[in-house]
Each structure stands twice: as structure tokens, then as C-alpha cells.
């Protein structure tokens, strides 16, 4: 019963979406314009089940996944380090935080062609896009988590003569874990988007999945293009889910919002 309750609602939504998709493909589009939205079974058959088409897609996905994950790890290290520094002194926060916000507001994608000029079209530029796009949520969430330790806990640590490092290590960082995981999940999704979209713009070097999307678009191979889009978003979902699982492993036994998060 509980299984039905859990899986039925999203399945119903999936069926509705597929039904709408078919309706648009077959009823909304004339056969000569059907390439604009090929029906799901065609996408599956041509894009995903044909090994000749699937192989380059998987290669592209692997490359983009590698870029996204390296970017995420770097953003994580930089973001947590920046947040820790900001939590230690107001002046550091006042100096750095405005620029962290700028990261969020500048159109990073518009800078992508520039990165190509400056750093070439290899992995480093692509990773840089991911880092820049994934950094802010990690800084903001970690800082929020580090600051959320209650006064009474700080008093307790003061009372027993704890120094800054002890306070950070035994009070603030463990207390910040749930927030850090929230940041990681958001940033993981963003990093995947950064890898795909950045790649989409580079148009040179080894093709990631973004470049393949652009290629299929140009060749009007819409089944492959949709398959590529589905693979890329599927990968994003997988990463989001994996970090949720990790969060529950680490903090689920003591943090309610982590333990109760709805996805599994």
C-alpha cells in the first residue's frame, strides 16, 4: 500500500507527460514537421536503443559528467573554504561576500566564449564554467550553516575554554552539514547544467553532450537530440538523488529535515 502511495503519483504524472508528448507529436504536428518533437518511442528507438547512436551519446555524457564532477569538487573545496574564512571574521565576509553575489548575477554563459579565448577549449575552461556556476550556493549554504549554531552551544564551548578551531571543528562544521548538503545538491545540478551548456558554447575540442546536442540540432537529427537532452537531465537527477542519499547517510540519523526529505 505504502509502495503504491509512494510511486503512483509520480508515475501518473509521467504518464500524463508522455500522453501530452504523443498528442503534440501526432496531433499537433504534421508529419513533415514532426521532427520538431518526435514521439517518445522514436526517441527511444533511434536515440537510445540504436548502438551506433548511443555510443557517441554515452561518450559525450561521460566527458560532461567528468567535467561536472571535477567542477563540483573544486567548487565544494573553494566554497567551504571561503565560507569558513567568512565565518571567522566579519571583515573577511564583508570583503568577499559581495563578489560571491556577483558570481550569481553575472551571466556566466555570456563569458564562456571569452574563457575559450583565454584558457583554450580543453577541460580547464569547461571546468571553470562549472566552478563559477556552482560556487555561490555552496558558499551561501555553508556560511548559513556555520552561523546557525545556537548561542547556548557557543556559551557551552566558551565555558569550557574552547578555541576557535575547536569550535569550528566540533560545533559549527557538524552543525552545518545539513546546509552543506543542501548546497551540494543545488550545486551538483548547476554543475551538470554548466558542463552541458558550457560545452554547447565551445564547439571545439572533444565533444561533450552539450556539443552533441548542438550538432544534432544542426543536422536536424531530432531523435538523437532529444535522447541527448534526456540523458543529460537524467544524469542531473541521478546526481541530485545520490547527494540526497549521502546526506541521509551522514546526517539523517540526527537531522530531521535531512531524514524527512521526500525523494529517495
Amino acid at each position: 500500500m505504502s509502495r503504491v502511495r509512494r510511486y503512483a503519483p509520480p508515475l501518473v504524472v509521467l504518464l500524463l507527460v508522455l500522453a501530452a508528448w504523443y498528442a503534440v507529436s501526432y496531433l499537433g504536428l504534421s508529419p513533415e514537421r514532426r521532427f520538431l518533437l518526435p514521439p517518445p518511442d522514436e526517441v527511444l528507438r533511434v536515440g537510445l536503443l540504436d548502438p551506433d547512436n548511443l555510443a557517441p551519446l554515452l561518450d559525450g555524457l561521460a566527458l560532461s559528467a567528468e567535467v561536472a564532477m571535477i567542477g563540483l569538487v573544486l567548487a565544494f573545496v573553494l566554497g567551504v573554504a571561503a565560507a569558513v574564512a567568512m565565518s571567522q571574521a566579519r571583515w573577511v565576509e564583508r570583503s568577499l561576500y559581495p563578489y560571491a553575489v556577483v558570481l550569481q548575477t553575472i551571466p556566466i554563459l555570456a563569458l564562456v566564449p571569452l574563457f575559450g579565448f583565454w584558457f583554450g577549449f580543453g577541460l580547464p575552461s569547461r571546468i571553470l564554467v562549472c566552478v563559477l556556476i556552482a560556487l555561490f550556493p555552496l558558499i551561501a549554504n555553508t556560511l548559513h550553516g556555520l552561523r546557525s549554531a545556537e548561542r547556548v552551544h557557543h556559551d557551552l564551548f566558551t565555558l569550557y575554554g574552547a578555541g576557535r578551531l575547536t569550535r569550528l571543528w566540533k560545533l559549527q562544521l557538524p552543525g552545518a552539514l545539513p546546509s552543506i548538503f543542501t548546497g551540494l545538491r543545488v550545486s551538483a545540478g548547476l554543475s551538470v547544467v554548466g558542463a552541458v551548456v558550457g560545452d554547447f558554447f565551445f564547439k571545439q575540442g572533444e565533444p561533450g553532450i552539450g556539443m552533441l546536442i548542438d550538432l544534432y540540432r544542426a543536422n536536424l537529427q531530432s531523435e538523437q537530440m532529444f535522447a541527448a537532452v534526456l540523458l543529460a537531465s537524467g544524469f542531473g537527477v541521478l546526481v541530485f538523488w545520490a547527494f540526497g542519499l549521502l546526506a541521509r547517510r551522514v546526517a539523517g540519523s540526527w537531522h530531521e529535515s535531512v531524514a524527512d526529505s521526500p525523494d529517495r
Partner: peptide, 20 residues
């Protein structure tokens, strides 16, 4: 407020004063 650290077990919470 009991001011316990929710990620620590009872034992580890009680140890905290001596640990610090």
C-alpha cells in the same frame, strides 16, 4: 535548554566538557 549536540550520542555529549 539541555544544549546537547544532536549529532553526538548521549555518551559523546556527556564527554564533551572533559573533551573541551
Amino acid at each position: 535548554d539541555p544544549a546537547l549536540l544532536p549529532w553526538r550520542t548521549v555518551r559523546a555529549n556527556v564527554e564533551l566538557a572533559a573533551e573541551l
